[in-house]
Amino acid sequence: MLQYVNMKIDGGDFRATKGSSVLDVAIEYGICIPHLCHVPNLSEIGACRLCIVEHVVNGRSKVTTSCTLLVKEGMVIRSNTEKIKKLRRNIAELLVAQAPNSRAIQDIAVRCGVKEVRYPFRNENCVLCGRCVRVCSELFGAKAIGFVGRGKDRRVEPPFGVLSDLCKHCGTCIDLCPMTFNPCEGYMKSGEEHLCGKCESQMLLADNLPESCVWCELGEGFQCSRY
C-alpha cells in the first residue's frame, strides 16, 4: 500500500508518495527544477548538482540536491530562492563553458539564467553525467562502460578503452547522452564558441513563470524528465 507524506515546496502544500525524492515530487506537480544527471528509474548519483534546493530544518536552510533527498513528513523545501538561482547559474556556467557544443547544455544554461560565460570555453565531448553508465549497467546489466580515472582524468570508457563484446549495441547510452545534439546553429569551431541565445523567447517564458513548468522547449533539449 502506498503511504503518503505532506510537505511544502515554495510555500505550497503537497502530498507525496513516501520513498520518492523531492525532485520526483516537484516534477510530478510541475515545479521546474533543472536537472541533468537524474534519469527516471535509474539510481541517483547527485553529480550535476543542478537540482539543488534549500532544505529548511529547524529554521536553518541547507543547500542539497533534490534528486537524492527523500520526502519526509512536514518537510519544507525552497526550490527557487535568489540564492539557489545564483548557485545554479554558476554551476550551469561551468558546464556550458566545458561543453558549448551541446544543445542540451546550452539549453540548461539558458534555463538557469546564464547570460555570459566568464571562463575560456573548452570543447569537451562528455560532461560526466553518468547517464550512459547507469543505463548500461542498471537497466541492461551489460556493464560495458564505466567511469575510469579520477578527477580531471575521469572519463567514460569500456574496459581498457576498447569496446568489448559486453556491449550489446543497444544504443540507449547514446539516446540518453546530452552531448548528442549540436546547438541549433550547428557546430561551433574552436575559438568561436558562444552562448547561442536563440532560445530567448523560451527563456522569457521560463523566466516569467520560474516556479512552474511551462513545457518549454528548453526542457526537451536537456531531456527534462517531464518529457
Binding site: S137, K143, G149, R150, E157, P159, F160, S164
Partner: peptide, 21 residues
C-alpha cells in the same frame, strides 16, 4: 585484471575503474 574479474566475481569494468582511480 581479467583473472581477478573472473575469480572475485567483479565485472571487468569495475576493476578497470578501481585500478585507474
Amino acid at each position: 585484471m581479467k583473472t581477478i574479474s573472473n575469480d572475485l566475481g567483479v565485472p571487468l569494468i569495475e576493476i578497470y575503474g578501481v585500478a585507474s582511480f
